[in-house]
């Protein structure tokens, strides 16, 4: 589904951050990319979602065989890629429900599915709100406006549930969550695991992996994947720290 080949990238005009990343993700798999601060985790997430401000020096990223890097962000979303943001931005004045409906229908149109009417939409929203234990009134506010840190993260996973992506990239979704919120979010993610859906979790700590068990774990360090393994690698990291996992 997703293939990253020897990706070299830097922040516009700055130093190189990704230093030859390669990764293959198949449908149904859950991958965890772990690494210390500054290892390039968020840069990788940003590049996959199509954020501005990066220079790609070399390498390629394909998604279902298509060149992902030339696609604008909305095309990626419509093709089924979803980024759960580390820091979801507040957008005052844009109603959360309205936003979600516009997004969902844009994606459905791209898939040649009929747009949902208000009733169908609302029904779908209600079911998924419950899953993430989100209060109704959150939906009546501006996008992420006045949400607590935990509410923002839950809202991201709620959006994922609504938009039903084929490839979800979760950027530090566990950071800033207390144990109850972590459990709710993890539960939401687990419910979204599916044979036709891949999930890439980017995280600094392994505690999310106690709840969402990955098929593969990769260690990103200084802009490249230095080790890959199964879930036991996460346990090893827990004991030795990133310093102990060299190439």
């Amino acid at each position: 589904m997703l293939e990253i080949k020897n990706l070299h990238a830097s922040v516009e005009g700055g130093r190189e951050i990704l230093n030859g990343v390669s990764l293959k993700v198949k449908a149904g798999e859950v991958h965890a990319i772990m690494g210390p601060n500054g290892s390039g985790k968020s840069t990788l997430a940003g590049i996959l979602a199509g954020r501005d401000g990066y220079d790609i020096a070399s390498g390629a990223v394909t998604y279902d065989g298509q060149d992902l890097l030339t696609m604008p962000p909305e095309e990626r979303a419509r093709a089924g890629i979803f980024l759960a943001f580390q820091y979801p931005v507040e957008i005052p004045g844009v109603n959360n429900m309205y936003f979600l409906r516009v997004a969902l229908n844009a994606i459905r149109r791209a898939k040649s599915e009929p747009e949902l009417d208000a009733g169908q939409f609302l029904k779908s929203v209600r079911a998924k709100l419950k899953l993430l234990e989100i209060e109704d009134d959150l939906l009546q506010r501006g996008v992420n406006v006045g949400f607590s840190g935990g509410e923002k993260k839950r809202n991201e996973i709620f959006q994922m549930a609504m938009l039903e992506p084929r490839l979800a990239i979760l950027d530090e979704t566990d950071s800033g969550l207390d144990i109850d919120a972590l459990r709710i979010v993890a539960n939401g993610i687990n419910r979204l695991r599916a044979p036709d859906r891949a999930i890439v979790m980017i995280t600094h700590y392994q505690r999310l992996l106690d709840y969402v068990v990955p098929d593969f774990v990769h260690v990103l360090s200084e802009g490249r994947i230095v080790r890959s393994g199964d879930r036991s690698l996460a346990g090893e990291l827990e004991k030795t720290g990133y310093a102990g996992v060299g190439s």
């Binding site: 979602a49 199509g50 954020r51 501005d52 604008p72 962000p73 909305e74 990626r76 979303a77 419509r78 979803f82 980024l83 943001f85 979801p88 931005v89 957008i91 844009v94 936003f99 979600l100 516009v102 997004a103 969902l104 844009a106 994606i107 791209a110 996008v143 959006q159 938009l163």
Partner: peptide
Amino acid sequence: DKDALFYLRARGIGVDE
């Protein structure tokens, strides 16, 4: 706001919209 614009686009909403 560039971040807000990216957020909307990352959810599938076209740039003009």
